[in-house]
């Protein structure tokens, strides 16, 4: 019962973080800031979802398998995020600056 409640909480939190990541991707002004949104918010969302489902797993092995996905996703994000940022910089994409009021 308590596990179910925790799972509900974690799945909803995951959905919120994924939504925030998408919102950042749509709203943020340049590729660098969008990368921040995706690399960080989406990974946190995935972590919440994985933790929530691991609580419901039938065996320890399944739970560990679910949790093993998270570090892989983190590695992918860090590596791909770096590649994209470097490519943008090499393409001469100038970081967005806020306007003084």
């Amino acid at each position: 019962m308590l596990l179910d409640a925790l799972t509900t909480l974690l799945l909803l939190a995951g959905a919120v973080f994924f939504f925030a990541g998408t919102l950042g991707l749509l709203r943020f002004p340049d590729v660098y800031t969008r990368l921040h949104a995706l690399a960080k918010a989406d990974n946190l969302g995935l972590g919440c979802v994985l933790a929530g489902l691991a609580l419901q797993a039938d065996s320890l092995a399944v739970a560990l398998k679910l949790l093993a996905i998270w570090p892989l996703a983190l590695i992918a994000s860090a590596a791909v995020g770096y590649s994209i940022a470097r490519r943008a910089e090499r393409l001469g994409v100038v970081p967005w600056q806020e306007q003084d009021q």
Partner: peptide, 24 residues
Amino acid sequence: QSLAGGVQVALLAVQPRLALRPAL
């Protein structure tokens, strides 16, 4: 740290006004 990073950027994304002060 990565939890804090996710929460921070999520808050920035849902704020009505974008409060970014980016720099390289």
